[in-house]
Design a protein around this nucleic acid. Structure first.
Ligand SMILES: Nc1ncnc2c1ncn2[C@@H]1O[C@H](COP(=O)(O)OP(=O)(O)OP(=O)(O)O)[C@@H](O)[C@H]1O
Length: 710
DNA sequence: CCACAGGCCCCGACG
DNA sequence: GGGCCTGTGG
């Protein structure tokens, strides 16, 4: 049915056939690592006869998992729905649901996302009477997350804590975990670390899974963290049939705890593993590949890799300098129009940026020119307030112990239940050792004012009503009931703003997503819906087939490919970010990010930067990214959008042509930034065009008259 | 005791 | 540009 040898090159095929023992595939971008892994899955099922449920394949996103599964189903014409293909989180979540009771995790646990975790940390901090301003909940939540990824328990951390600050964190961590367990909740990091802990304390369970998963395949191994690797090592204590593929040059998730060490040390943990290198790039033209290779060669902490292509040289990589961010967006969108005219499908075009904030102008410009597009990522769909509100209702319905969700919705929409009342309820719950919902639903009269008491009673009644058919109702129907009964949409309609309308639309999309879930799942229960939703990412919702221009961060573009790629905003402080400038390791990660961006392109790659960019309400001159200078200048096609002979905005010619921008940008009261004087406030603007004189008040240097010279 | 407006501050990538 | 906190008015 399949001729593996003709679909793969020799090295790939070698990796596919190596089914006994550990295999490490270390290879550059576009060399066919994912393809190899996909075919290996097919090979194991088809040639070796391994039952699909005996294979564990781990991918980076759910979407990648879906693609791998579909691809293999196509190849083999079989149904693979019982194979374990998914992300670490979804696989571990599944294991935890099945077997977690052994370590005291109830079957119906809910998953707290990063935002929920921060909320919970906040609660703990105020419970302890600590000052949330000096402690910064977000940072503490991060610290806890880092500890969990390193499999360090609160007790262990307390033991080794040296400074008072560390002891405080240890205390918060301990209490945080306690509250999670009380709320029958696990956070993202728990999903992995609890499974590892279970495997370590209950060897018979480990044994069972280890036997079940006869073969393990892992994609994007360079971005795994300590607990994920530990999970894999636990599973391979009886057999060592594990194949991992990755590229150290594409490790871009260190901030999430990914450790390059995992891929570099793999041979140490699996002595005698087979190491395979793939050196032929099947994705990009020679020009693009060459440019990317030159850039990444500037990194010192890496394994040099050979990567060649037999593809034609193709077009040169374009380097575009734009006077400002508006010009940049206009140029890119014009090029997109041109490419589409030449027959490149919109879906094969991507604009990639370092930070989400950069998407705005491109969206505006695309909208104005009537080109369909999609923004992948950003404030993720499932992180939007209205979506989280609705989901919090559902979570409270299935799990009354969930205090974080209760807090979120007890006064959403407004019901006259404020902070004071919530605090009172929390204290009652605390002293009685029960959940907040138990306190308010017990029927006992609460020691609060009559008005609030009435509101609370109405709220409890509402929740109880919604609860009646919770076991049988479909998720989509439940959402509609919630929206109706709570008056959520009604309130938004009354508000009648653009934002409110967008929110109503989002809720509509949530219903649609629920319906889709119902049609796909063989068990469309509320609990399963919640589980799938929390682990869903924006990339997962993204449908490439839709044939619209794609806007996304470089992180989100990992593993994808497009005919044409625009990498924008190559400026100091944006890409690389300011914080990465002082630290070699971070700077190298930024460079890897640039490498990932360039290597997404099959035929056309364009890199852009601007002289001036508006950020945080002011205009800044950031200076170009050092990465620009690392490009092979003689191989580029340089495009300068700044008028000839001018040093940009300082120039007379340029200023004259841009009076309107001038006038609107430098008006009294706005904050500006100067490379030498720093931030200042515009006091007065006189004249126009070349003679514009702006008086600016700089906190540290006093008032300066400047000839439009920022 | 709650809601809302306005001022403040800060600002990265995400399962 | 926006989330969070504070102060004020209801
Ligand atoms: N042997 C092959 N013959 C033809 N095309 C191939 C072969 N191997 C890979 N390709 C194609 O090359 C492209 C890149 O492959 P793939 O995505 O598997 O690479 P990768 O190494 O995982 O890339 P990256 O690390 O950059 O995400 C895909 O379009 C794939 O179909």
């Amino acid at each position: 049915m399949i001729d593996f040898a003709s679909e793969l090159n020799e090295q790939q095929f070698e990796g596919v056939r190596a089914i006994d023992g550990p295999v490490l595939v270390l290879a550059g971008a576009g060399s066919g690592k994912t393809r190899m892994l996909t075919y290996k899955l097919a090979y194991l099922v088809y040639e070796v006869g391994v039952p699909p449920y005996s294979i564990l394949a781990v991918t980076f996103t759910n979407k990648a998992a879906r693609e791998m599964r579909q691809r293999v189903e196509q190849l083999l014409e079989v149904n693979l729905s019982n194979a374990w293909v998914g992300t670490f989180h979804s696989m571990c979540g599944k294991i935890l649901r099945k077997s977690g009771e052994a370590i005291g995790i109830p079957r119906d646990f809910v998953i707290y996302d990063a935002d929920d975790s921060v909320q919970l940390v906040k609660e703990v901090i105020s419970d302890f009477g600590l000052d949330p301003r000096s402690l910064e909940p977000k940072k503490i939540a991060h610290a806890i997350s880092a500890l969990k990824r390193k499999l360090i328990s609160p007790d262990e951390f307390l033991e080794r804590a040296k400074t008072p600050a560390e002891r405080t964190i240890a205390k918060i961590y301990a209490r945080y975990d306690e509250l999670l367990r009380k709320a029958k909740a696990v956070d993202f990091d728990d999903m992995i670390s609890l499974v590892v802990r279970m495997f370590r304390t209950r060897s018979e369970i480990r044994q069972r899974y280890s036997e079940e998963f006869q073969y393990i395949l892992v994609d994007e191994f360079q971005d795994t963290n300590e607990s994920q690797f530990a999970f894999l090592r636990e599973l391979t204590r009886t057999h060592q049939n594990i194949t991992v593929v990755g590229d150290d040059d594409q490790s871009i998730y260190s901030w999430r705890g990914a450790q390059l060490r995992n891929i570099l040390d793999f041979p140490k943990y699996y002595p005698g593993c087979k190491i395979i290198r793939l050196e032929k790039n099947y994705r990009s033209t020679a020009h693009i590949l060459e440019t990317a290779s030159v850039v990444i060669a500037h990194n010192r902490m890496r394994h040099a890799k050979r990567l060649y292509t037999t593809a034609p040289a193709g077009e040169r990589v374009k380097l575009v300098r734009a006077p400002d961010d508006y010009a940049e967006a206009r140029y890119v969108v014009q090029r997109i129009v041109d490419l589409m005219d030449e027959g490149i499908p919109a879906g094969e075009i991507a604009v990639l940026y370092r930070i989400n904030a950069l998407s705005r102008l491109f969206e505006q410009e695309l909208r104005q020119r009537g080109i369909p597009y999609v923004v992948v990522g950003g404030v993720g769909f499932y992180e939007r307030a209205e979506i989280k509100d609705i989901l919090a209702y559902i979570r409270l319905l299935v799990n009354p112990a969930d205090d974080v969700s209760l807090r979120r919705i007890i006064n959403t929409p407004r019901r006259g239940i404020g902070a004071t009342t919530v605090q009172a309820i929390a204290e009652l719950a605390e002293s009685a050792g029960v959940s907040m919902y138990e306190v308010i639903s017990s029927g006992e009269p609460l020691p609060i004012r009559p008005k609030q008491r009435k509101s609370i009673e109405a709220f409890v009644e509402l929740i109880e009503d919604l609860k009646t058919d919770i076991d049988s109702v479909l998720p989509s129907v439940l959402i509609q009931e919630i929206v109706e009964r709570t008056g959520y949409v009604r309130q938004l309609m009354e508000e009648d703003s653009i934002q409110a309308r967008a929110r109503i639309e989002n809720i509509g999309q949530l219903v649609a997503a629920a319906q889709e879930f119902e049609s796909q799942s063989d068990e469309p229960t509320i609990l399963n819906f919640l589980g799938s939703v929390t682990l869903m990412t924006d990339v997962d919702r993204w449908k490439k087939g839709e044939d619209v221009v794609n806007l996304m961060t470089i992180h989100a573009a990992k593993g994808l490919e497009f005919e044409a790629v625009f990498v924008v905003g190559l400026e100091l402080g944006v890409f690389p970010l300011t914080r990465a400038l002082q630290d070699d390791e971070q700077l190298e990660e930024e460079r890897r990010l640039f490498y990932v961006a360039l290597t997404r392109a099959k035929r056309f790659a364009t890199v852009t930067y601007t002289i001036q960019r508006s950020r945080f309400g002011s205009v800044e001159e950031l200076g170009r990214s050092p990465f620009i200078d690392e490009l092979p200048q003689d191989k580029l096609d340089v495009v300068d959008l700044v008028p000839e002979g001018s040093i940009v905005f300082r120039s007379v010619e340029y200023a004259r042509s841009r009076e309107e921008v001038y006038d609107s940008r430098y008006s009294p009261g706005i904050v500006v930034w100067h490379p030498f004087f720093g931030k200042g406030v515009v006091m007065e603007v006189r004249g126009a065009g070349e003679r514009t004189i702006v008086t600016v008040d700089f906190p540290n240097f006093g008032r300066k008259k400047l000839v439009a010279k920022f």
